[in-house]
């Protein structure tokens, strides 16, 4: 479904990504783990058009599309949407409005339709509102719809970000550390939300530090360290991989 082939990205002297390759299959949850500064978020930025990789290819299948060199707004249209590691909600907008903004690509009516309130306008607005209410219900946010998004508790802000990304009806959803800062109860709820998303046929790439979140969810795990893929495989084999253990815990001292 999504093939990442040898992509590299450099910031000055730092090789943030170094020939990273992996593949996401239809309906999979793919976990990306690695220590801080391993290049995980840079990877997301390269996939979503925020940064452009210097080398390599990112290909989407069905229909076949090349993502490198494309703008962020084009990539969303093609079915990849994302959340952010540091929550980026719109400070002046309500919960419902966030979800409606997420549906921007689902409402292609133009300027004249807007000003003249054409049939197209009414139909698409109706659809996007209906979708928004369904999503709010899925995420358990419907009773908060008129609230300002910044007034929500942290856990619900993260959930709203996921809802906003889902409103774009992505085929692939990129979640950047969705469990960071959540308490254990909220983490359990997040697991259920992600599973529900997967059931809808959306493939997920998940950046996460919390192994209790990544491991049960992921069909495939990619481990990054210093911009390189040091291992990839299913959750069980990754947990036993000596290189992964070394990257996280350090090497056992020889003369100990």
């Amino acid at each position: 479904m999504l093939r990442i082939d040898q992509i590299s990205k450099r910031f000055g002297g730092v090789q943030a990504l170094d020939s990273v390759s992996f593949e996401l299959k239809q309906g999979q949850v793919l976990g990306v783990i690695g220590p801080n500064g391993a290049g995980k978020t840079t990877l997301f930025n390269c996939l979503t058009g925020v940064f452009q990789p210097e080398q390599g290819q990112v290909q989407l299948n069905n229909p076949k599309r090349d993502l490198v060199g494309r703008r962020a707004e084009t990539i969303v249209k093609w079915g990849i949407s994302r959340t952010f590691q540091n929550i980026r909600l719109f400070s002046g907008m309500s919960v419902l409005e966030h979800i409606l903004v997420g549906g921007y690509t689902q409402t292609p009516y133009g300027f004249l339709s807007t000003v003249l309130r054409s049939k197209n306008f009414h139909r698409q607005e109706y659809e996007v509102q209906t979708q928004a209410y369904a999503l709010l219900e899925l995420l358990g946010l419907e009773h908060l719809k008129q609230q300002s998004a910044v007034d929500l508790p942290f856990g619900l802000q993260r959930r709203l970000e996921i809802g906003r990304a889902l409103a774009a009806q992505p085929k692939i959803l990129l979640l950047d550390e969705p469990a960071a800062g959540l308490n254990p109860v909220e983490k359990q709820e997040l697991l259920q939300v992600i599973q529900a998303i997967q059931k809808r046929g959306v493939s997920v790439i998940l950046i996460e530090h919390d192994m209790q979140v990544v491991m049960p969810l992921s069909d495939w795990v990619v481990v990054l360290d210093h911009g390189r893929v040091i291992a990839q495989g299913d959750a069980v084999s990754i947990q036993k991989d000596p290189q992964v253990i070394e990257a996280y815990l350090g090497k056992a001292s020889e003369d100990a």
């Binding site: 969303v76 921007y104 690509t105």
Partner: peptide
């Protein structure tokens, strides 16, 4: 909505498909 979104956060707006 798109105008308000880009007023509040340009990057997040672009990542929701807003040109």
């Amino acid at each position: 909505r798109a105008w308000m979104a880009m007023r509040d956060d340009e990057l997040a707006a672009a990542c929701m498909g807003i040109p």
